[in-house]
Amino acid sequence: MRGDSVKELLQSLHTTANEEERRLWAAACAQALGLGGITISVGRELVWFSDATSKRLEDLQFVLGQGPGLLLDDESSVREVPDLEQALAQRWPQYATEATLLGIAALFVWPVHIGAVEVGTMTGYRRTPGLLGERQSANGWLVAEALAEYVLNHWPATVGDREGDGLPGGVGLHRAEVHQATGMLSARLRIPLPEALDRLRAQTYISRLSLTDTAHAVLRRELLWETGGDTD
């Protein structure tokens, strides 16, 4: 799969039947685009990523509430951050600092559309600074459009309170545990869900754990907050 062209990879997209195959496909696609890795997010859900670094970058945006994939100014163009160090004192100081510590030099964000509506983003990173080439940008749009259709057709079905598999090859919702942990914190501390999520995000940043690991610690009751004298 590695070494395939973007056109060849798009033709094989429908054959990605499980999580491992989707990651291998995304890694090959990133390579074909001249990128180190890519992620795809729909709303607040991370649904696809090529490698641990790309997942970490997407989680940083979620935890910090800042980054190039949030609140795109123009839904019809690629947001390019060709030199991340220059963004340190500008729009995303915390995010840029954390990303540069991971060795990231440049970031690129394509809006993901279903019809005329922007539903998410495809974000790619590179470890060398510089703008995208015209062909890279155009190929990125092709990938983003194909992934939008794939995600729409393979969104997991909901069975009761749990996520089902949906159609074969259904995409994974990688923040399901985060939502569960948020609900547990909300009930335990008797606070609104947004405040519970803010506490979870803050703990993730302070502890330097991944967002998923922090959520797991809450669900396993290894990480507890003061309840103001209340008990379970």
Rank of each mutant, 00 (worst) to 15 (best):
L84H: 01
L131M: 11
T182G: 14
G103T: 05
A138T: 12
G166P: 07
Q90A: 12
P111D: 08
L101C: 07
Q136H: 06
L70M: 10
Y95G: 01
T214W: 03
I206Y: 09
A52Q: 09
R56P: 00
N153Y: 03
D51K: 04
G124H: 06
A26L: 12
L9D: 00
L10A: 07
L173R: 14
D83S: 10
L9K: 05
W141E: 06
L72M: 14
E226N: 14
Q136C: 06
L46W: 01
E163R: 15
L13P: 04
A196L: 10
E134G: 05
T53D: 08
G43D: 04
V6W: 04
R127N: 12
L189F: 05
T123A: 10
T100F: 00
V109L: 03
G120C: 09
E85M: 06
V78Y: 09
Q11G: 08
E134S: 12
T212F: 10
V109S: 01
E80Y: 05
A27T: 03
T128G: 06
E145H: 13
H14C: 04
T53P: 01
V143E: 02
P192W: 09
M184H: 12
L167H: 13
R135N: 09
T15E: 12
G183T: 05
R44E: 06
P111M: 08
H14A: 13
E149S: 12
R91S: 11
K55T: 01
A96Q: 02
A187P: 06
G229W: 06
L84D: 02
V143I: 10
G160V: 08
G170L: 10
A105W: 01
I191D: 07
I206D: 13
T123P: 00
G183Y: 09
A28K: 07
R135W: 05
N139P: 01
I104C: 03
P93N: 05
D4R: 13
T123K: 04
V63F: 01
L88G: 02
D74N: 15
H154I: 10
Q11T: 09
E98T: 02
A148G: 15
L223D: 02
L173P: 02
R221Y: 10
E80L: 04
A181W: 03
L152E: 14
D230Q: 12
L219I: 11
D74A: 09
T123I: 05
V109Q: 00
E75V: 13
M184N: 06
T39S: 13
V119F: 07
G170N: 11
L173C: 14
L46D: 01
Q61N: 02
G65I: 06
L60Y: 05
A96W: 00
W225I: 02
T121A: 09
L185M: 13
L197I: 01
L64I: 02
F49Y: 15
A17E: 11
E118S: 10
H113P: 06
R79V: 10
A26W: 00
D51I: 00
R126H: 11
G69T: 01
T100K: 07
A138E: 14
S77E: 15
E8H: 07
E177S: 15
L33I: 10
D161Y: 11
E222T: 04
D4A: 15
L13M: 09
D73G: 15
L189R: 08
I191L: 14
R220T: 10
G160Y: 13
L224V: 13
W225S: 08
A187I: 07
V42D: 00
V78F: 08
V6G: 03
A146W: 05
R91G: 00
Q203I: 09
E85D: 13
E20P: 00
T212P: 01
A215E: 01
R91V: 05
